[in-house]
Amino acid sequence: MTNKEDKTLRLLMPQWQGGNNPPYVLGAHLLNWLAPKTNGPFEEVPVDLDANLEKEQGIVGRSVLLKQARSAKSLIQKHRPDRVIVLGGDCGVELAPFAYLNEKYDGDTALLWVDLHPDVSISEDWPNHHAHVLTNLMGIGDKEFVAEVPRPFKPEQVLFVGLNDMMEALHSKPLQNMKFDIATPDDIEEDSSKVLQWLDSRKPSKVIVHFDLDVLDLREFRSLLIGES
């Protein structure tokens, strides 16, 4: 009897509308070029390059973002992979793949949100969807985005790593009764022991990692978009 090898899908999603930053298209393709090549399946999510975005139901570019999320979902379902490597794009690119993985593994996952920001806003607070994605993944926010998440993440599945900005969003009305674990920049300055201890305490079968470049130290990485502010 031969063992079936796990399948890893490499998903390129040069989405830019969630933060209204067209250079993200080039950035996603550069990431794809820089990342080591793999032997597994590869898909690129079609992304609309039209820069004329309107606010719809409180969200900038809502319809095109929903279309792209559903396209990503379709491509993932085509392969039914065991793992997904996502190269984007704004943070909203992770709606479809993270929703798929949490459903596939029946919620037996941990989500490391390695980011300067928590991305738990709603449209009433912020119109750009890149800041809504984790809220949607937890079943909160715009009903059509939430409908793309068959098994929402629970707060205890999430560890914020490097969080250092917009922390007040964690206490907004939809989240005020939720408790989140956080590893601050000071907590991980010397090593990653706090993250490892958190994972050991939960013992998930699978770990999902969100990594936003803005979590990097601006003293070392001045070329980041956030360095312009």
Rank of each mutant, 00 (worst) to 15 (best):
I85E: 08
A72T: 07
T109K: 06
T184S: 14
D186E: 15
F160A: 08
L111S: 03
W113Y: 12
W16H: 04
R70K: 15
S192E: 06
L9P: 02
V60Y: 06
A28I: 08
K7M: 11
E148S: 14
D165Q: 10
S205W: 03
N20P: 00
T8S: 11
L26F: 06
E56M: 04
V120L: 14
I188R: 08
F42I: 10
R202M: 02
L101Y: 05
I122R: 05
H129R: 01
E190Y: 05
S229W: 06
V114T: 13
G107N: 04
Y100N: 07
L9S: 05
K37Q: 14
P150Y: 09
R80T: 10
W33K: 13
D82A: 11
D82V: 03
I59S: 08
L224T: 03
K55Y: 01
K143P: 14
K4W: 01
D191V: 01
N136E: 14
I226K: 00
N177H: 13
E228L: 13
D119A: 07
Y24H: 11
V158F: 03
V133K: 00
L225M: 13
K154P: 01
L49V: 13
L199W: 11
L112E: 08
R83P: 00
W33P: 00
F153A: 06
I76R: 09
L30E: 11
L224Q: 10
T109S: 12
D200Q: 15
A69R: 03
D200N: 15
L65G: 02
R151W: 01
L137M: 07
A131V: 09
S205D: 11
G40W: 04
E190K: 13
N3Y: 13
N52D: 13
L31N: 09
L218C: 04
